[in-house]
């Protein structure tokens, strides 16, 4: 079941720095939603608020109607939330397969004692999740890398491994923080196809933070533009790109005047 997300009046301060101010928007279940804005606008901070890594000073964040503000982040995975990080955070010495398997943690049954005793049901679950992780990697054309230490892969592939790690948890709401940063043109095309396939195959809501406007236009149903921690506008990607306030935020007021 794809999840819905609702933010109301989210404020986040660090000391005197207002990182987010009164951010309010809703994400319908099943959509691909874009979150854009200039560097430092607060996009990653907003993701951190949704995933529980940051605690907003005020406001409300609900996932499918459940208030998550103030929940420990590890509890949110069980509500169907999964995310990637702007800087891929893989275990570089572990294999790619082991990295992806982490995403399966919440789907595996059993207590430490049953795993230490290797009770048949834990062994079966482990075999099952491994097969599933390998299948994901194979379909992504990454099967060859499964047994390699993640540290030996390129930056672009790290982003991919993070995506498959997040997907192995079967999320209902997936947050992708700049999934295309540093990717080549061909890799971006490939990524767009992958996200379309994921949406076609599973019931999932996806929120993408991205500076690559081509990707945002190609994938998203709706976008919110953030600037200096405030919501600047909300609409389709095309509307955002032609919105004067957005152009101004991105290239500065003077340049916007020159362009006009």
């Amino acid at each position: 079941m794809a999840a819905s997300l609702s933010l109301k009046g989210v404020d986040l301060h660090f000391g005197g720095v207002k990182v987010l101010q009164d951010v309010t928007f809703d994400v319908e279940p099943g959509v691909i939603f874009g979150l854009v804005g200039p560097n430092g606008a607060g996009k990653t901070s907003l993701f951190n608020c949704i995933s529980g890594h940051y605690k907003p000073n005020s406001g409300s964040i609900t996932i499918s109607g459940t208030e998550v503000l103030g929940s420990a982040p590890y509890r949110l995975a069980r509500l169907g939330l999964a995310r990637t990080f702007q800087q891929p955070a893989l275990q570089l010495h572990a294999t790619v397969l082991e990295n992806v398997l982490l995403g399966g943690h919440i789907r595996l049954p059993g207590w430490p004692v049953s795993w230490a005793l290797r009770l048949p049901y834990t062994a079966r679950a482990e075999r099952g999740i491994r097969a599933e992780a390998l299948e994901l990697l194979n379909r992504a054309g990454l099967g060859w890398a499964a047994g390699l230490p993640a540290g030996e892969l390129s930056h672009g592939l790290h982003k991919g491994v993070e995506l498959w790690r997040a997907l192995l948890s079967k999320p209902a709401l997936l947050l992708l923080d700049e999934p295309a940063a540093g990717l080549s043109h061909g890799e971006v095309e490939q990524f767009i196809k992958t996200v379309r396939r994921i949406r076609a195959e599973q019931d999932i809501t996806i929120i993408i933070v991205e500076h690559h406007m081509g990707l945002i236009s190609a994938l998203t149903d709706r976008v919110v533009v953030l600037d200096h921690g405030r919501k600047l506008m909300e609409g389709t990607a095309a509307e955002a790109q032609s919105d004067a306030r957005v152009i101004e935020a991105y290239i500065g007021k003077d340049a916007a005047d020159d362009a006009a």
């Binding site: 590890y74 949110l76 995975a77 990080f85 082991e98 943690h105 919440i106 795993w115």
Partner: peptide, 28 residues
């Protein structure tokens, strides 16, 4: 057996990055 499956991976990710651990549903 303990360090080879579900909990071994949890140990490893808690060692390397608690923020990632939490986002995988693992309580550091």
């Amino acid at each position: 057996s303990l360090v080879r499956g579900k909990y071994g991976r949890a140990f490893g990710v808690v060692r390397e990055n608690e923020a990632v651990a939490a986002s995988m549903g693992i309580s550091p």
